[in-house]
Design a protein around this nucleic acid. Structure first.
Lengths: 227, 227, 227, 227
DNA sequence: AATGAATGAGGGTTCATTCAT
DNA sequence: AATGAATGAACCCTCATTCAT
């Protein structure tokens, strides 16, 4: 006996009879999120052009067609994925508010937090890769990353340095105008990890500590600074 | 002076008018180089997968087929291009030999030279982009870049720091063990330029100076270091 | 009844008018078979290299891409096609079992059956063409044909001749050692048809009868055999 | 100093000074022949479509361009090659005139000669392959082969059989009308060799002898023919 | 909602043919 | 006469996208 032609070939009858674990509604609500996560993995691993929509679907054990139910084109999916990944990453603002101690201590802690959330966080690191790789294709992408990650950190850094200079704890110097250099080792670690792909792991934390020590106290013997 | 399109392809008229400058042999000898240069531009701009061999050819006003006379596959072309671009870039070794002054001065000069040749040199910068973007695809590529650019610079840096520590000019500290952090601002500038694509130009030189000043003398007031 | 080109691709009108006979599933199940058949026609007509995958597709009113849904490469398609065509061709074994009469009669009937299934069967004949044309490319192809067609026939022939010699019905002679020559006219007819392409049709059956008569009774007058 | 424009870039100055072994004229006269021979080898080995003009040139250690000096297109080259190979093959007519002995003996000798010149001659055998493989493409090719090889042999065979029947040496039978079947084993051996590609060599001569014996004296015991 | 068969627009690569040297 | 760089038309194969089920 064949199914009547008018009847939709409802493949979900199991669900309706209580066999389900997750309701259809739940599933549907979760789908976009799942797809964005899968897209992140694939795009990060292979880049935009080399990633096939089917690869993303397969990762979720669904089919291409389903992806297109939620995102109209590969391009849109990529952008949404980027925005999603950038947004879902850890939020620095609360951490920044909790800093205690001298300016130097707070700068140090801020840098370490930023490091943990950037160079040491795989997701954020891969977003950096995509920004570099596909940056020319999607300028807004870069701006998005900048606004969410970099700008707040730099703002906090700038504020801290200003405060320190005012209180006399920190030197008033050209460096005070470009506090971004304080964070340069974060980028360095991230870049290294992106390129070495774990073939030559480095101790990022140690490198951060070294850099912080350096930018705080300088390489040159203080006596030498008399001149 | 461009050739008129309708011109009969008389084999001699060009010669007779002195228009001909490049003989066939010359042209052929130059072709591989030209193609590698064009490939560099295209691959750097769009990445491996998104670049069409035809784009590379069109840039030289030749056809796809001609490219394949010199390189057997797109993949080989990419690798050769990378090697070529990496090799043809400026050589630091001579510059390193000419450094004069105190250790601090020489470190400063070395960093500025490295900056000029890396973050401030478009070619090298784009190689960094490719290393990040396609690094997973071609680990050797990254190693190639590392050996040619980074290793020598770091070696020189390490030697200078050691010398300075020995002579007492520089502090003996954890930082002395990881001299790479001295160069972190180079990576930072490079990364910034790769991502902003000149939409938000930065004064790389000033940033370098700031960073060098910082890592040399520290952000913290020297009096605070007595402890 | 063909579909009008301008017809809106309304998903239901065909069903409602009873035009739809093949469901999607049926169609899919049939596709590999259809493609193999179409491939047979094209490859047989033009040879491997000169056949375009698109030709095969067009024959089925589908597109190239669809062919690649079922066969990964042109090469695999060719091999599968060959195997399919060889396997699907008539099976001699049952026919061989039904032979009755004297050895001479059974040999005669066997040869005629083999003729019908080989030289007189277009499919088998074209497989012979492919074996000759592309044999160097694919030795296994030839072996495949040999095992399926030739070996069984020769085995039966050998058995019959042995039986006849034992019973005294047939001459014991060098010919008894190489019963394959009994079947040579089959090859001859097949070769002729492959080359003349029906421009000069021959009466294969008559030729077979002549040959069988000859190999049975000899061209030479029996009295002349005294010498 | 560059060559004057009017002077032909004579690369053969060595020849003119007596360095040569073969004069340019000789060379030129031989070229078409050489190319046809090389074309035969390549086309026979790979078929028309799969053979590249460059393969043919390389075999002669010349370049593609040179081939095009003598033959306007690949297609023409193929046809000329076929005609050349067919023509240059051994001529049966003289051999046929030398036959001596009874009709049976002369038929036997004729078949053996035809075998030597056809199934046992690599060149002729490969022409058979091409006729089968590309026959549909070029009907004239097949006719060419037919006229040169098959027709004369069959004519001689027919004449001999007629003569034998008239003189009473040979049976008057249906077989006398289709003397081609006498030659069927030649085709059989040729076909076998073309397909097995020497992987399973057969003793063609023995097979020929068997077949001749069979068609002459029959497989059935002469006593059985009394009935 | 989900599927996956089908499409068709390319992109990589090959190769017959041309032509300046 | 000979070369071989260059061309451009195909051909194989892939994949984003659609749509009937």
């Amino acid at each position: 006996m064949r199914l009547a032609a008018g009847q939709p070939n409802n493949s979900n009858w199991m669900i309706e009879r209580g066999v389900k674990k997750t309701s259809r509604a739940e599933r549907k609500a979760r789908r976009p999120h799942e797809i964005l996560e899968a897209a992140f993995e694939e795009f990060a691993a292979k880049g935009y052009a080399a990633t096939r929509v089917e690869d993303i679907a397969t990762r979720l054990r669904i089919t291409k067609g389903t992806v297109y139910l939620y995102f109209p084109t590969k391009d849109v999916l990529f952008q949404e994925m980027f925005r999603h990944a950038a947004t879902s990453s850890a939020d620095l603002s609360t951490a920044i508010g909790c800093l205690r101690g001298s300016c130097a201590e707070r700068i140090r802690d801020l840098l370490l937090i930023a490091y943990e959330n950037t160079a040491n966080d795989r997701k954020t690191r891969e977003l950096l890769r995509l920004s570099v790789a596909e940056g020319a294709r999607l300028p807004e992408m870069v701006d998005c990353r900048h606004e969410l990650f970099i700008a707040p950190t730099l703002a906090a850094l700038t504020a801290l340095v200003k405060e320190g200079v005012k209180s006399g704890e920190l030197r008033q110097d050209t460096a005070a105008d470009t506090p971004d250099v304080l964070a340069s080792s974060i980028v360095q670690v991230a870049a290294w990890r992106l390129m070495s792909a774990d073939r030559e792991p480095i101790d990022g934390k140690a490198l951060m500590e070294s850099h912080i020590d350096l930018v705080m106290h300088g390489l040159v013997q203080p006596s030498g600074r008399m001149a």
